[in-house]
Deep mutational scan, measured.
Amino acid sequence: MATGGRRGAAAAPLLVAVAALLLGAAGHLYPGEVCPGMDIRNNLTRLHELENCSVIEGHLQILLMFKTRPEDFRDLSFPKLIMITDYLLLFRVYGLESLKDLFPNLTVIRGSRLFFNYALVIFEMVHLKELGLYNLMNITRGSVRIEKNNELCYLATIDWSRILDSVEDNYIVLNKDDNEECGDICPGTAKGKTNCPATVINGQFVERCWTHSHCQKVCPTICKSHGCTAEGLCCHSECLGNCSQPDDPTKCVACRNFYLDGRCVETCPPPYYHFQDWRCVNFSFCQDLHHKCKNSRRQGCHQYVIHNNKCIPECPSGYTMNSSNLLCTPCLGPCPKVCHLLEGEKTIDSVTSAQELRGCTVINGSLIINIRGGNNLAAELEANLGLIEEISGYLKIRRSYALVSLSFFRKLRLIRGETLEIGNYSFYALDNQNLRQLWDWSKHNLTITQGKLFFHYNPKLCLSEIHKMEEVSGTKGRQERNDIALKTNGDQASCENELLKFSYIRTSFDKI
């Protein structure tokens, strides 16, 4: 039985969820670079991206490699990797027998973001014989899940209580170790020597080791999670996991709180800001991140802002960003909400898709409305799209047979046209069989910064309504002859009103 693990408890099935942008060198404390989270699957090609990484700022997932063999891993080693800020997950990587050479110096898994409450997941690794993470000293947050690894031993010899604050939620089941077939031998045991430290858990006094050649490092209890030197002297209180010299914040392997210019500090002093819960960055760093993602459509890219001495992905609820200094300031009234469309555009074809934009005031991208039916549609669209004030790209209304009016965009005031449909149009209306009105132009103002209007096959939309939009939106004169079809717009509506004058002759039985 794995020490510190839980057996036999019912657990939810383990679901495996399925960018080499360097964020800056980590400095003297770390020998390499800070790398983003990685999802490495199918083959070993991307694994080489770990070569210079000291910190993975995010998670590391290595999974679904069915053609790899043990010899493929023999020359692979990433000794610079010290810390993973989120979680480490391995799933069905064939041929991998140990992690001792792959990650010989991995010391800390912070667990800032977890995989279903777990910071370390080893699942269905069919050839893994031992973990071998002999320098792993601290899992700051989260638990361990090690399950269905039929060859995995050296679990009962690990004292997880020396690595985690609590072992109650560890789930370590259905491994070879369960069948008591392992016969784990710690260093020196074969020669009758006791080389590794022994600890007591559940009444068992057991030597602690990761492999037959690597003991588990056990520091004096007084050192807590700070770690200790090879001689057993406690590291500085700002260290986490390990250090090369005692009581020196510049000799830590990793930091308990924050890293700044080669030393570990309790908090980031001005003019620095907390970033990702582990390091200090200056304003320029946060500003660069903001600008890199301002026009990016890459998933996970955030326009970072500053709030409460932190550089964070977005302002919290009730705050909006001051564009001059990136500071989050309290909103006066309802907060603006910028919604970034991942692929640059979004099609609204149902109430469900409209709900995804609920509360958005600025759309960074283009909207395509293609709704053919739905219950209580006008009210639903207004509830979900009615706060949109600005669209950076274009607005396209296409084959939306259920629409009679666009009044559900009740606050839309600006279409920038930074991206144009077919390279020309910022407003595009095609084949809307029941569209009769755009907006009530006596109450609604709309500016279209650039781009043209396109109207074709809107049989109940009168040309007068379209011409009014040209005047109000500032697009009059931009359109070419064929942009607004004269014969297919309003051709099934009563669009022309003329005053009919009647004269009559009164007659009676005795007068003409």
Rank of each mutant, 00 (worst) to 15 (best):
I163P: 00
N138D: 13
G227T: 06
S143F: 08
L164G: 15
I222Q: 07
G300F: 07
R141H: 12
S323D: 04
R279T: 04
F73G: 09
D169Q: 11
L64W: 01
L114G: 01
R46P: 05
E124Y: 12
T329N: 06
T194F: 15
I185Q: 13
R41V: 09
D178S: 08
I139M: 05
D277C: 02
T229L: 11
V253P: 02
S324N: 11
L81D: 00
C228S: 03
S323C: 04
N105L: 02
L131T: 12
I139R: 01
C286N: 00
Q287V: 03
L289A: 09
N322L: 13
H290M: 12
N150H: 05
N202D: 10
C209S: 03
N175T: 13
E97Q: 14
P270Q: 04
C315Q: 01
L240F: 04
H127R: 03
D39S: 09
P104I: 01
D75H: 05
L99Y: 01
L102S: 01
I109R: 00
N257P: 00
C186L: 07
D178P: 07
M83C: 08
I62R: 01
I82S: 05
P270G: 02
K100G: 11
L88F: 09
P316S: 02
Q204G: 15
V253Q: 06
T157P: 09
M321T: 09
F258E: 02
T85E: 03
I163V: 12
L63S: 13
Y134A: 07
I185D: 07
T229H: 03
M125P: 01
R297Q: 11
Q303F: 10
C328Y: 01
G262P: 01
N257E: 04
F116R: 07
N175A: 13
I82L: 08
I201L: 14
N257W: 03
Q204R: 09
G111E: 00
K191A: 05
N322K: 14
P220D: 14
P336W: 08
P336H: 10
M65C: 02
I56T: 01
H226N: 08
H236P: 03
I172F: 05
Q287L: 06
M321R: 11
Y87G: 01
T329I: 15
G58C: 01
V167C: 14
G241D: 02
K294T: 02
T140K: 14
N138E: 14
C328P: 00
G111L: 02
D261H: 15
C235D: 00
L128H: 01
S317G: 09
P70R: 10
D288G: 11
N135F: 02
G203W: 05
P270K: 03
F91P: 00
I312P: 06
C215N: 14
V167M: 00
T45M: 08
Q303K: 07
H48S: 08
M125Q: 05
Y87S: 01
L174V: 15
G318S: 07
R46Q: 04
C186T: 10
D169F: 10
S213C: 12
P79V: 03
L63A: 06
K67T: 06
N175S: 10
N322F: 11
P104V: 02
H127L: 05
E151T: 02
S225I: 12
V167R: 06
I222W: 15
K148W: 03
P334W: 05
H214I: 08
C280K: 01
E238Y: 05
S213M: 13
T85P: 00
C335T: 08
T189D: 04
N195L: 11
W210K: 06
K176W: 09
P313T: 05
V253S: 15
N105Q: 08
S244W: 10
D39Q: 08
I306S: 02
L50K: 00
V253E: 09
S225F: 13
I146K: 00
L63R: 08
L233F: 08
V200C: 09
E124K: 06
H48A: 06
D177S: 02
E238C: 01
H212F: 10
P269S: 03
C53D: 00
T45Q: 10
I185V: 15
V55R: 01
R162D: 08
L50Y: 04
S317L: 07
P313N: 06
V34Q: 04
E49F: 04
A156Y: 15
L174H: 15
K80P: 01
I222N: 06
Q299N: 15
Q61R: 13
P70A: 07
L64T: 09
Q216N: 03
F258C: 05
H214W: 14
Q61S: 13
G203Q: 07
N42D: 10
C286L: 01
G262L: 02
T85S: 05
P336S: 07
E180I: 03
P313R: 10
W160F: 13
D288N: 14
G262F: 03
H127N: 05
K224R: 05
E314R: 13
F91Y: 14
G142I: 02
H290G: 07
E33G: 12
C280P: 00
P249K: 00
N202I: 04
L29W: 11
A190G: 05
L76M: 05
G58Q: 00
L102P: 01
G183V: 07
Q245A: 08
E33T: 06
E238H: 11
C335E: 04
D165I: 06
I222T: 05
G95T: 02
R297I: 07
H28Y: 09
G32K: 05
Y273R: 02
D169W: 08
P334L: 11
M65H: 08
V108A: 03
V55S: 02
L155A: 08
C335K: 01
K217E: 14
N117L: 07
R263C: 00
Y319C: 04
S323I: 06
L44C: 03
I84M: 01
G32D: 13
K310R: 09
E33P: 13
G232C: 14
M83N: 01
N42W: 08
F78S: 02
N42M: 08
N150L: 09
V218F: 13
L89S: 02
L120Q: 00
L88V: 07
S213I: 12
W160C: 02
F205P: 08
S77A: 03
K67I: 11
N170L: 08
I158Q: 07
G95V: 02
T250A: 08
G227P: 12
V121A: 06
Y118L: 03
V265Y: 00
